[in-house]
Nucleic acid binder design. Sequence first.
DNA 1: TTTCATTTACGTTACGTATCGTAATTAAAT
DNA 2: ATTTAATTACGATACGTAACGTAAATGAAA
Lengths: 199, 199
Amino acid sequence: MSQAQDRSSARRGRPPSQKARQKALEAARGILMDEGLGRLSIEAVAARSGVGKPTIYRHWANASELAMEALMAGFPAGSGGGPAGLEAALAAQIATLTQAFATTRGRQIAMALATADPESEFTRAFRNRVLLSSREAGREMIAAAAAAGEIGAPEDIEVVLDMIYAPLLYRLLAGHQPLDAGLGPALAAGAMRCLAPSR
Amino acid sequence: MSQAQDRSSARRGRPPSQKARQKALEAARGILMDEGLGRLSIEAVAARSGVGKPTIYRHWANASELAMEALMAGFPAGSGGGPAGLEAALAAQIATLTQAFATTRGRQIAMALATADPESEFTRAFRNRVLLSSREAGREMIAAAAAAGEIGAPEDIEVVLDMIYAPLLYRLLAGHQPLDAGLGPALAAGAMRCLAPSR
DNA sequence: TTTCATTTACGTTACGTATCGTAATTAAAT
DNA sequence: ATTTAATTACGATACGTAACGTAAATGAAA
């Protein structure tokens, strides 16, 4: 009976197609790379992938969700959990992010962001998914260091967090300075000076 | 001032385009002739004519209205106003209709009707526009003849009207017998026998 | 075990409207 | 009289869903 019970949990009818889903994601990535975020639409993805619009709408609510998944799959979300010591942990976190953006995928995300309307659904979703979650992880690392007596209680943690993470986004979008290996240690050191007790 | 007043009745902004309207109608006629009523759609007309769908929807509420106008423009509506004498007037009216259906346009309409769902918007609209209005014109001719003393008051005018006009539609749709010149006099003579006082 | 019925997903085509940049007009300002 | 502003229509593209015939599955019946 257990086998019958196992079987009874199987859905009847035609199963959703993972193949169709992958084809849509690949087409979306192709459009993002070849033409840019502004050219990504459900119609364009359907035309390029051969996947019907109703099927695309079964997997994603709109073009922004699809774009997000097409770009973000496999991309680190900026979590903490680095080495001991606040400065080293912050430097490691930022290094992970800058390395991620240095990949082909990361550069494409950056390009997509640069061409997108800053108030678009996609840009807001990206900030939430990567930058704000990185920022929250940083807040937790700083709070843990203060609780351990490694630093004093920060006077204005919001400003410090912005000083750490805003340059990431700024360099990403403006492209005037590189997101290189030196950024992590520099930002971490700057944060430590900001967090040192004032004299 | 009257000129200014005349001018004030002119609409501001871009005038609706009669050219666009004619292009849509021509494309609709082309589709009806080449492919049949079932293939006429707003998308197909837009694609064939180059007229945008929003523009088509400004002129017609749906594909059925467009089809009706594409087919019916210039087609007689089955009005009365024929010669004196009921039998001659009825024969003339039916002759006008059968001649209209004998034209290329008329045959196309017939073909369009034959392939259409009998309950479709289009078929119902056709019945309203041509057959029912013909039937009402017939009713008026019969009522006028009765008022003039040419015939007695009909006992069951609805049956008589059906006997006159139903064969038109039946021959049109079934195609088993021709809509020829003999039909008008035959139906008119039959009507007169039906309208003669019973003995 | 095989066949049939039922259920759910797929892709095609169409619908009817939204948004946008451009075009064609009239009205107002200069 | 000319220029500028305002208004309305146009066509392109996209949206998100409806309807339909077909495909791919499971469950029931024979």
